[in-house]
Design a protein around this nucleic acid. Structure first.
Lengths: 229, 229
DNA sequence: GCCAATTGTCACGCAACTGTCACACAAGGG
DNA sequence: CCCTTGTGTGACAGTTGCGTGACAATTGGC
């Protein structure tokens, strides 16, 4: 399956950056926002697997974010882990009553947070471990037949999917059209060489997202390669 | 067997609503009342499998409800889990003496409560705590042969049930028609591949409820997968 | 035995995908 | 600069794969 996707709601820039870094290193896809209202939007649009929510944030308060996440249909089931200040027992109580699934008291170690997040995700989605390929901002889950670019799912046809998988299994390497025909279409196919071009184009079109450069490199008179961007 | 039935006695509306929501999501049937006397009536009439009882409720006090539940023949053996305020050791002791089976100190996480309830049911009535699978808004009770979507029971034929169970045991994963035939029909079946399509359709039709998207994903030229929605 | 539910197949139609082409465009050599 | 070679692009018809409704055969309860 695709990498677990987190939404981190944290308005301390230093802490946010640190956590984002650690999470990414663990293979999560992370979105960060300091703002409660934006968090609600992101949660509804991106459907993250888990929300890490700081209690004290600007804009809409943590408790209100929590409540509204639960009330919105699209986000009603998202697990919420909240971060509270030390000793704020009241907040803790209200947080759990509002629907948070777990809490962590500051100061906490990133390691502990990672452990909690892992525990919650394992409980909610036991099948979070499929064979995953990652090249740059591209993620391909062979088991779930899903491709993700910059955290958003992209749609590919069957041939484009096989093509991309082959590229991702050998990132950076240049393949000639003949090699691609062998690998993707099968050894004894009688396909026109130029047909590869067309599918390369369809692949490019399929994985293009706003503001992301084309990771497919054309090597004139040699073939194509996938670059990590 | 039917889904486990809970009676929740809680007079804080917010907490009551939250817990009811969570319990239903786990496939329980829940009745809620803020009032002790009404709780006694409901317990006698509905014969729930377990009572979750807040200590501090309006009307008859928690301890009195507990005592009278035990005195009434119909409800003498119903397991009781009580919710106490932090540090009220006295209540805890008196509660257990009065016949409660377990207690939980506020603040508690909904997860913790769910875990306790599951534990009690497994201990008191092993048959009641069937293996439950949850994927998105779908809940499947293997032992009761019951499937719930968004808290409402849906009807499936035997084949559709096995099909759904197999999907729910591997959420997100794509299965080819052949794999599904092996897993759901048995290894040496001589069934047409396309027959799978028809049962997929029947499964889709079976689990469709108003306003909920289709969780069964078609992966062209590959097979089908169940998505957590 | 009878009725209702379930099951496996099939044929049809639509939507998505595929391979190919013609042409436009870019890159490099002389 | 022109010419050759190689690649991008849009369109198009043929093919494939899937959804759907219908139907007869089978099963299982009463």
């Amino acid at each position: 399956m695709a990498a677990p996707r987190l939404l981190l709601v944290e308005d301390d820039p230093a802490l946010a950056e640190l956590l984002e870094f650690r999470f990414r290193n663990e293979g999560y896809q992370v979105q960060v926002t300091p703002d409660g209202d934006e968090a609600l939007l992101l949660a509804a649009e991106e459907a993250p697997d888990l929300v890490v929510l700081d209690w004290m944030i600007e804009g809409t308060s943590g408790i209100e974010v929590c409540r509204r996440l639960r009330k919105t249909k699209a986000t009603a089931h998202v697990p919420i882990l909240m971060l509270t200040a030390r000793g704020a027992e009241d907040d803790k109580i209200r947080g759990l009553e509002t629907g948070a699934d777990d809490y962590l008291t500051k100061p906490f170690s990133p390691r502990e947070l990672l452990a909690r997040v892992g525990a919650i995700l394992r409980r909610i989605r036991p099948a979070l471990a499929g064979e995953m390929l990652t090249v740059g901002d591209l993620t391909l889950d062979a088991t779930a037949h899903k491709v993700t670019r910059r955290s958003q799912v992209v749609a590919l046809g069957p041939t484009e999917f096989r093509l991309l998988r082959h590229f991702m299994e050998h990132p950076g390497r240049v393949f000639s059209r003949n090699q691609l025909l062998d690998a993707v279409w099968g050894n004894e196919s009688e396909i026109e060489l130029r047909t590869v071009d067309v599918h390369i184009r369809r692949l490019r079109k399929g994985i293009e997202v706003e503001g992301a450069p084309d990771p497919v490199r054309t090597v004139r008179s040699a073939g194509y390669a996938l670059e990590a961007v």
